[in-house]
Every structure is written in structure tokens, then in C-alpha cells.
Design a protein around this nucleic acid. Structure first.
Length: 813
RNA sequence: GCGGGCGUGGCGGAAUUGGCAGACGUGCAAGAUUUAGGAUCUUGUGCCGCAUGGCGUGCAGGUUCAAGUCCUGUCGCCCGCACCA
């Protein structure tokens, strides 16, 4: 039987019957938790991206397995979420029904992949057995002050008809549908991720993660060291606190600015100015978020008629309201130093406000205003002549003594908004009692089940709000009437802890058993798309740390080592999409070539972390390679031992050299997810065996050993096919259970090695030297070679550089 | 605007981190086999040149015995951040 999907099925069946991929719960000393970001069953089928992620990570997992690791490799589905609900609005098919159907299809496809998944540990986030514990997680955060409710202007996607977390807003647009996001004032649930801002930052350097991803998280957390300084409002018992990183410019403050949304605006605005200020605030409200954040838009603002007292000079400075100050960052209030800040300079110039220089360039350098670099202070009383770096601290120290300021660290990171005005998610386990207020649902009453019969009218109100059966309940505290929360949890909450549930997915007493989870985690290798850098990966780290502090687990980070796969593009080099018509359907190719050929093409055709354009010819090439292997195995298996020798001549040594150097590089490459070069080396070994097989006299036992090693190394990339070849070669075991070959250092030493001979850095010819020749001997061989003579004639040798195993460079003049 | 990454044959992509550029594969060409096509096998294939040879890793310089790799400048593409005080 030549390789096809029939072979795939044959081995999938045998593997399943022998429970080959079941995780051994007793051998934890060599446990290895290998995880891919679980899939979202929105589209009915697996796409190439899933294959690229899951199939190739499985190559790595398989090698590890053969190296003796007890690999824990689970699969599951991130099954709540918007697309299923939007689909329901469009078609009338209930999210639960469409989701469960998609999951079934995808499970089937994942099984065809022939991966080492242990399906006993499967999880489905939309099942009550799972979201019961998502709700439990919410309650623990609530109990520990990490979940709270507040009214705030939040991001609203008019198309998805729900609020979004900051992380889900990309350039002012919805991460999912690209619709421009607006602001809405709503009372919503937040998780206090900001409590962990510093630790989330501090642990990054210790993680084996792509530097780019760590950078994204660093930027997102946005730590900024500065000071908070108090400006008293003139004639009022009120003070404005500003955050600044440039306290050294304090003497240059000529006005103070409040964000239009700042609550203090009402309190400080002088009566005569109220009308104008109100008008301005309304005007600002109409500006879209995208325009508001644009740096090219001209700044606008209005004077409040009020004055602030400069904390050091006691002078009066005007208080303005302006749209270039953001309400959500720092204190929503800024001290303006137009001489040394571009934004303040632009604003002050436009409105004719004072500009006072307080910083000069060091050593009389160029310092035209606005001069925003550090320098030396001037016009700053006793601080004149001090350097900015020192003054930004010492000025705050002075303020501190008078209780007018302090050093302060601010983060850009905001708390995580987790309420969603949507149906298809985990209900928030909280009720609102007329008498008792906000009451968490007791853990014994979980899960708060998501009702099935609900109307999906996309009108911006949570669908659950219209479901009276669900909404009306009794207060767990007083037994009186209460209403449930009509919102559901952001699906990122479900995915922020799923890696903790996998190892203990059947536990109905607790979310997970602490002792067990402490043995099984952290995840040793996590593989998934780079787009989750500031969302899922940040949330998961936060949840892990929060649960650690509550005593539910004892490790600091969920994912020790992270890899991002690249993106497979359409053959036109564009992102795959239905509208472009350039999508590649894995099923079609698998049907035609078999799942292993598909997997091998994905492994060979791209640098894993880069991805790249799909190419139909590439998969044909892998099909050819499989055929080449098959013919070779067939031929040598049929040939048997006749006319075999046992000697190790130069041909045998050469074959053995390639065999062992292949083991060395395939092992190293696969370890580092460099699957393309691993397969290239396997092709070279195939070519070498073919070449050796063409000889008259052969060492059969050496050749068949080489084939066996080859097949073992091939098996992570072509699991079904390799089993078939293994069997065809007369073996009775599963190749999947074989030990990964190890290279023999001695076989890597050749009798003779080839060196390039250079004259002044230019290669002229090659020489063969005994591999144990020392530098002196090599130099002599090179210089005495007849081909060297033309380059030596009439010249003197200045220097000879010998690079072992590489080249000889003769410098002549 | 700021920060980071990348730029290598017709194409996908390699290059033990400063040491023979172009591994492996595709494509192309010639040949063998075949009734033919396909498949398979062999050989060649960075560019220029009949050739000795010369030129080659976006471009221009530099360091070095030696540079795809390091440094400076520059162009192009991609990514992240962006009124964060």
C-alpha cells in the first residue's frame, strides 16, 4: 500500500487502540507540558494556520516523547465568543448548537492530524463544567479585592454592541471588526491587573519568550518614573495634583491643564466661565477617539477663569481645560511648561500664554525653544546650575518636606474591563439585591447557568436582560428579590486560566487540585500567534500571579518558554481571506496527498517563526520525497543480507558520518523549531543512502541501521508514514515508541578533511589534509602545493592563518 | 515622530555567530528510460565571459588576514508605540 489517507487511518486506529498518547500520571519526573493556544471554533473547519500551529508543535512534542519525556499534550476549545452569537443573529442558529457542531468537526480534523493529543483531558470553555470554575475564579478575585465595579467612560464598539478592554482597541478601532470605537459611560466589572503592573514587568526578563513580545508587554505596561506635585487652587480648599516626569522644569510652569473629563473642572471653573467651559466640554465629547488621539490635530482648549498657586514660587498660573490632556493617564491633570515641552509650546503659542526658559543646553549647545532634552537649570532660584537629572529628584525632595509633592511611578496599564453586553459567554456570578446591594453568588450555587432560550436582538442591551426567568432570582443573603447581572464575561477570562484546568479537567470539587497543578505546571512550551502579546498572554500571567497570592498555586509564571508561529499567506503573498479567494483548505490536500505530506510541507516550506506564501509545487515536492523514501525502504527491505560485507571502508565511514551528523543537526534544529532545516538534513541523508546503495559491495547492517535511524528521525514529521515504513522494514514495534537516536562523536571525525586555501582572503583552491594534522603541518601542505606557487612568486609571506576545519589564509606581499 | 526587526539566485529559504555565500527543495536546461505524456534516474544551474578570470548578500563608506554577519551613513519593507506629560 503506497502512502495515502488509508495509511493515516490505519495507524490512527492502532494508536488509539493501544492508548499510545495517554499521559502517564505516575511519571512526573520527566513530565513536559506542551501546549498550543487552543482553537476558537468560529469557522466550521481547521485552517492552515491551525495546522501550522498544532501539527508542527506536535513534531517537537514527538521528538521530546522519543527522547523519554512524559509529554502532556492536551487539546480543547475556546468556545464562547462573539462570532457564534453574530452568526446566530444572522441565521437564527443557536450559538450552542453551531459551536458544538463546529467543535465536533474540528475534533475530527484534529484527530486526522495524527498528533499526540491526549483527548482525555479535553476542555470546552462553554460547558457548565468549565465555566462553573471561570465563575469561581471571578468570585475569588472579588473576595480578594481584585474584581470591582465602577462607572467609567469605557470603549464601546457600535458594531459588536459591547464594551471592549483597552487591549482590544487597536488604533482606536475594534480588534475584531475594525469599527471605530466610541466612549460610553457605564457601570462595569474590572479586574485589578494594575496591582500586578510592577511584577508583570519584573518577571519578563526571566522568560524564554521572543524579545519582541516582551517588548510589547513592556510598552503596554508603560512604567514611567516621575513625581506627583500639588498645585493649590486659588481661593478654594482644593488642590490639583499633576503627574510629571520633568519636575526639573517646575519653575517654567506657566499654566496648568485639566482633561475635559476631569471631575475637578466643575469645581474650579469660575462662575463667569461656566458656559464657555461647558460648551467646550460638549464639543470635545463629539470628537471621535481616533481624532482625539491624533498628534497632528490642532490642540484646543479654554480658560476656566481659575488660578492655581505655584507650589514653589507662590505665583498665580491660569488653569485651562484642553483636549490634549488625557483623563485616564496619571491624574488627568498636567503642569504646562511650554519652553520645554512640544505640546505645551504649541498650545501656549496658539493661546498667547507665557513661555519661560528654565533649562539650558549643557556646554552652550543648541537649545532653541521648545528645548525638550535634559540640560542645566536656569531661572530656577537655588537650583540654577543643577543638571536636570539631579533637579528632577531634588526639587521633589524639597516639595516633599512641605507636603506638596512626592516621587511617583505611573503605569500606562489600565484595569481589565471584563463585562460584555453579549449572550454567548460565562454569566457574571453576582446578583443585585434591593436591600443588600451587590451580592456574590455562593460557590455552592455555581454554575450560574446560561439559559438557552434567549432573544438575540442586536440593540446594545445584553440579551440576558430580556430573559426574565434568568434575571429574577432571590438574594442569597436575605432571600428577598434580586436581579442577576445581565452581562457575561469577556472570553479572555475563560482563556486566562484554561492551562490550569487541562491537567485536572474532570475535577468536580475544585477548579484544579493545588498539589497536582504545582507538579504539572508551568507549561514548558507554549506555541501560538503573536497577536496575543498584550491580551491573552498578559491576562494569563496576571491570573496566575493572583491565584498564587491567594494560595491556589505556587509558581510565578504560567508559560516558561513561548514560540510564535509565522503566518501562512495565500500563494499571491497576501493574507488568506475568503474575499480574496486565496484560501488553502487543508482537507483538500490531505485527501490528495495524506496528512503527513501536508505536515512535512508546512515543516519544510517555511522558516517556522516567519511563515510565508503557500505554494502548491512545494507540497508536490514533499510527495516526491515520500515516494523516494518509500522506494528506498522497499528496495533495501527486499534486498536482504546477500552479498553483504562487514568492513568499514571509506564509503561506509562517509555514510556513517552523514548518519551521525544528521542525528546531531536534526535534533538541534527540531529543538529550536527549525523544522525546515531539519527536513533538509533528512533529505541529505536519504540522498546519501541512495548513493551508498548504488555501490557494488555494501555493508548491509550499516545501511539498515542508517535507515532505521532515518525513519525514527522522520517520524515526528511524518508519523503515520514512518510507522508504515517501519513496519515495511520488518519492525514489529511502534516507531513512535522508539528512542530518539543519539549521535556518536567518533563517527563525526573524518580521516581527511577539505580545506579552502586563500591568498589575501581570496579562495584559490582546495586541499585535503588528515583531520588530525596540526596547524604547522596544514600550513606546510598549503605552501608546498604546486597550485600555490604562482601566488608566492616574487612575494613574501607575511602571515598564515589556519582556521581548523575551515580554511588556510596566506597573506602575501 | 520614537523604538525594534528585516533586506541573500527566477522562487521558498540555508549559512556551526566573523571563516569556502547560495545547504535542501523548487523552477529551468540537457540527457537516459518510455510508443507518447506522466513518473523515475543522471548531469548542469548566482551573474558576466569562449576562456585564464572577474563581479556578487538593498545602496555608499569603514574595521579586519577574512564581513551576509561588526561599525557609520542611506534607501526600501514590516512590526510595535504614539498628545502617556
Amino acid at each position: 500500500m503506497s502512502y495515502s489517507t488509508e495509511v493515516d487511518r490505519k495507524w490512527q486506529k492502532k494508536w488509539e487502540e493501544s492508548k499510545l498518547y495517554n499521559f502517564d500520571r505516575d511519571k512526573l519526573d520527566k513530565k513536559l507540558y506542551c501546549l498550543e493556544m487552543f482553537s476558537y471554533p468560529s469557522a466550521a473547519k481547521l485552517h492552515v494556520g491551525h495546522w501550522y500551529n498544532f501539527g508542527l508543535t506536535d513534531c517537537w512534542a514527538r521528538m521530546k516523547r522519543m527522547q523519554g519525556y512524559n509529554v502532556f499534550h492536551p487539546q480543547g476549545f475556546d468556545a464562547f465568543g462573539l462570532p457564534a452569537e453574530n452568526y446566530a443573529i444572522k441565521t437564527g442558529i443557536h450559538p450552542k448548537d453551531s459551536t458544538l457542531k463546529n467543535v465536533e468537526t474540528m475534533e475530527h480534523q484534529l484527530k486526522e492530524m495524527g498528533a499526540t493529543f491526549d483527548w482525555d483531558y479535553e476542555i470546552l470553555t462553554c460547558s457548565p463544567e468549565y465555566y462553573k470554575w471561570t465563575q469561581w475564579l471571578f468570585l475569588q478575585l472579588y473576595k480578594n479585592g481584585l474584581a470591582y465595579r465602577k462607572n467609567a467612560p469605557v470603549n464601546w464598539c457600535p458594531s459588536c454592541k459591547t464594551v471592549l478592554a483597552n487591549e482590544q482597541v487597536i488604533d482606536g478601532s475594534c480588534e475584531r471588526c475594525q469599527t471605530e470605537v466610541t466612549k460610553k459611560n457605564l457601570t462595569q466589572w474590572f479586574f485589578k491587573i494594575t496591582d500586578y503592573a510592577q511584577e508583570l514587568l519584573d518577571c519578563l526578563p526571566g522568560l524564554d519568550w521572543p524579545e519582541k513580545t516582551k517588548k510589547i508587554q513592556t510598552n503596554w505596561i508603560g512604567r514611567s518614573e516621575g513625581a506627583e506635585i500639588e498645585f493649590k487652587a486659588e481661593g478654594k480648599d482644593l488642590s490639583l495634583r499633576v503627574f510629571t516626569t520633568r519636575a526639573d522644569t517646575l519653575y517654567g510652569v506657566t499654566y496648568v491643564v485639566l482633561a475635559p473629563e476631569n471631575e475637578l473642572v466643575d469645581q474650579i471653573t469660575a462662575p463667569d466661565y461656566k458656559g464657555k467651559v461647558e460648551e467646550y466640554r460638549n464639543q470635545v465629547k463629539k470628537i471621535s477617539e481616533i481624532d482625539r488621539l491624533s498628534t497632528v490635530r490642532e490642540k484646543t482648549g479654554v480658560f476656566t477663569g481659575a488660578y492655581a498657586i505655584h507650589p514653589l514660587t507662590g505665583e498665580k498660573v491660569e488653569i485651562w481645560v484642553a483636549d490634549y490632556v488625557l483623563a485616564g493617564y496619571g491624574t488627568g491633570c498636567v503642569m504646562a511648561v511650554p519652553a520645554h515641552d512640544e505640546r505645551d509650546f504649541e498650545f501656549a503659542t496658539k493661546y498667547g500664554l507665557d513661555i519661560i526658559r528654565v533649562i539650558k543646553a549643557e556646554n552652550g549647545g543648541e537649545d532653541a525653544l521648545p528645548f525638550c532634552d535634559y540640560g542645566v537649570l536656569t531661572n530656577s532660584r537655588e537650583f540654577d546650575g543643577t543638571k536636570s537629572e539631579e533637579a528632577r529628584i531634588s526639587i521633589v525632595k524639597k516639595l516633599e518636606k512641605e507636603n506638596k509633592g512626592e516621587l511617583k511611578v505611573t503605569y500606562r496599564l489600565r484595569d481589565w474591563l471584563v463585562s460584555r453586553q453579549r449572550y454567548w459567554g460565562a454569566p457574571i456570578p453576582v446578583v443585585y439585591c434591593d436591600k443588600c446591594g451587590v451580592v456574590p453568588v455562593p460557590e455552592a450555587q455555581l454554575p450560574v447557568e446560561l439559559p438557552y432560550n434567549v432573544q438575540f436582538t442586536p440593540d446594545g442591551e445584553s440579551p440576558l436582560a430580556k430573559c426574565e426567568d434568568f434575571m429574577n432570582t432571590t438574594c442569597p443573603k436575605c432571600g428577598g428579590h434580586a436581579r442577576r447581572d445581565s452581562d457575561t464575561l469577556d472570553t479572555f477570562v475563560c482563556s486566562s486560566w484554561y492551562y490550569l484546568r487541562y491537567p485536572d479537567n474532570k475535577n468536580d470539587k475544585e477548579a484544579f487540585n493545588t498539589d497536582w497543578i504545582n507538579k504539572m505546571l508551568p507549561v514548558d512550551k507554549y506555541v501560538g500567534g503573536a497577536e496575543h502579546a498584550a491580551m491573552h498572554l498578559l491576562y494569563s500571567r496576571f491570573i496566575t500571579k493572583a491565584l498564587r497570592d491567594m494560595g491556589y498555586l505556587n509558581f510565578d509564571e504560567p508559560f516558561i518558554s513561548l514560540v510564535h508561529q509565522g503566518i501562512i499567506l495565500g500563494s499571491d503573498g497576501q493574507k488568506m481571506s475568503k474575499s480574496r479567494g486565496n484560501t488553502v483548505l487543508p482537507d483538500d490536500f490531505i485527501q490528495k496527498y495524506g496528512s503527513d505530506v501536508f505536515r512535512m510541507y508546512l515543516a519544510f516550506g517555511f522558516a517556522y517563526i516567519e511563515g510565508g506564501p503557500w505554494n502548491d509545487d512545494g507540497i508536490k515536492a514533499m510527495d516526491r520525497f515520500a515516494g523516494r523514501v518509500e522506494r528506498l525502504v522497499e528496495k533495501i527491505a527486499a534486498e536482504g543480507n546477500e552479498s553483504s560485507v562487514n568492513t568499514m571502508g571509506s564509503d561506509e565511514k562517509e555514510l556513517n558520518y552523514i548518519r551521525h551528523s544528521t542525528i546531531k543537526s536534526v535534533t538541534a534544529d527540531t529543538e529550536q523549531f527549525q523544522f525546515n532545516t531539519a527536513i533538509a538534513r533528512l533529505m541529505e541523508l536519504t540522498n546519501a543512502i541512495y548513493k551508498y546503495d548504488g555501490l557494488e559491495t555494501k555493508n548491509y547492517s550499516l545501511m539498515s541501521d542508517a535507515i532505521r535511524d532515518f525513519l525514527k528521525m522522520l517520524s515526528p514529521f511524518a508519523p503515520h508514514f514512518s510507522e508504515e515504513m517501519w513496519e515495511r522494514f520488518g519492525e514489529k514495534t511502534f516507531i513512535t515508541n522508539e528512542r530518539w537516536p543519539e549521535f556518536d562523536e567518533k563517527a563525526l571525525v573524518r580521516d581527511e578533511i577539505e580545506l579552502a586555501v586563500q591568498f589575501n582572503g581570496q579562495i584559490r583552491f582546495k586541499i585535503n589534509v588528515p583531520s588530525d594534522a596540526d596547524n604547522k603541518a596544514i600550513e606546510e601542505i598549503a605552501l608546498k602545493d604546486s597550485r600555490s606557487q604562482p601566488y608566492l612568486e616574487g612575494k613574501s609571506v607575511l602571515k598564515v592563518i589556519v582556521v581548523k576545519g575551515r580554511l588556510v589564509n596566506i597573506v602575501v606581499k
